[in-house]
């Protein structure tokens, strides 16, 4: 087999030190291993992306890609999977992309359990538009659009995904490349809607590296994964205090495209 070359000629324009680069490294490792172990052929992998700093990732990785509109990658992913179930469909979204602009698509994808995998680069604000509060920014967060502090409580996307019917719900931290790679692989292998929130500090507009480094912890791997109530409890921990990482929930259910082609 010829050596996989996952790099492109595109110049990387993320800020130096941006954790998006760590996510890129984790994806490349995850994909390389999955190809090497024969899980999929590289031509059968398609990566979708939203619009935001996170979405630039599709330019930096030499695989099939579909860079969507802001917030609209999820329906395109479902369409592609339905039209060719042999493809592995993964997506890179942002918190603004999927928790603000495209929230309805996220709920629908979880509800119908489409066999796609979504990674949300969650930096808790709109970064590409130079830093405004969004659906997951902390209450009181001061930004250019909220100079006196955000008046909104943040959304808990993991809880929302559990309530919506997602069959794989996990969180990881961009700074932990090995941990992120592992969760990515588990998510890709999962048959059904796999949702992974990736805590990704934005070093330019909201540097949360210390906050998360000191508060993030991996949950006990031996906890049951099919207990919805337990999963809901775990993801409800206040992330201003403690940030649990790991796979909170994983069950098997019929997939959308499976039912469609039955």
């Amino acid at each position: 087999m010829s050596e996989l070359n996952l790099s492109t000629k595109a110049k990387i324009t993320w800020c130096p030190g941006c954790p998006n680069s760590q996510i890129l490294v984790a994806v490349k490792q995850a994909v390389t291993e999955l190809v090497e172990t024969g899980f999929f052929k590289i031509e059968d992998l398609t990566a979708f992306a939203g619009i935001g700093c996170h979405g630039k990732i599709s330019d930096y990785i030499n695989i099939n890609s579909f860079t969507s509109l802001h917030g609209r990658l999820v329906p395109a992913m479902i369409g592609a999977k339905c039209a060719n179930p042999a493809l592995t469909v993964i997506g890179f979204s942002g918190d603004g992309d999927s928790y603000s602009e495209g929230l309805e698509h996220l709920v629908y994808a979880a509800k119908v359990n489409a066999d796609i995998t979504l990674f949300v680069h969650n930096n808790r604000l709109f970064a590409l538009t130079t830093g405004q509060a969004n659906a997951v920014s902390p209450k009181g967060f001061k930004s250019k659009s909220t100079p006196f502090g955000s008046i909104e409580e943040p959304l808990n996307p993991l809880l929302l995904m559990l309530a919506s019917g997602a069959t794989f719900v996990a969180r990881t931290f961009a700074g932990d490349i090995a941990g992120t790679k592992k969760i990515m692989q588990d998510a890709i292998k999962h048959k059904g809607f796999a949702f992974v929130d990736i805590v990704q500090p934005c070093i330019t507009f909201f540097d949360t590296r210390d906050h998360f480094n000191s508060r993030a912890y991996w949950i006990d791997e031996n906890l049951p994964k099919n207990d919805l109530k337990l999963a809901m409890e775990k993801v409800s921990e206040n992330i201003e205090e403690k940030v649990p990482l790991g796979i909170f929930y994983q069950v098997e259910k019929p997939t959308f495209e499976g039912e469609l082609h039955k």
Binding site: P75, I78, K81
Partner: peptide, 29 residues
């Protein structure tokens, strides 16, 4: 079973974006 498929998604924005995903992988939509 092996031919035409019809999908009714959550709204029109989803409809057209889903269709573009279908088109991207080569099916007539």
């Amino acid at each position: 079973r092996d031919g035409l498929k019809v999908v009714q998604p959550e709204n029109e924005i989803s409809v057209i974006n889903m269709a573009l995903g279908v088109s991207y992988v080569g099916k007539r939509v």
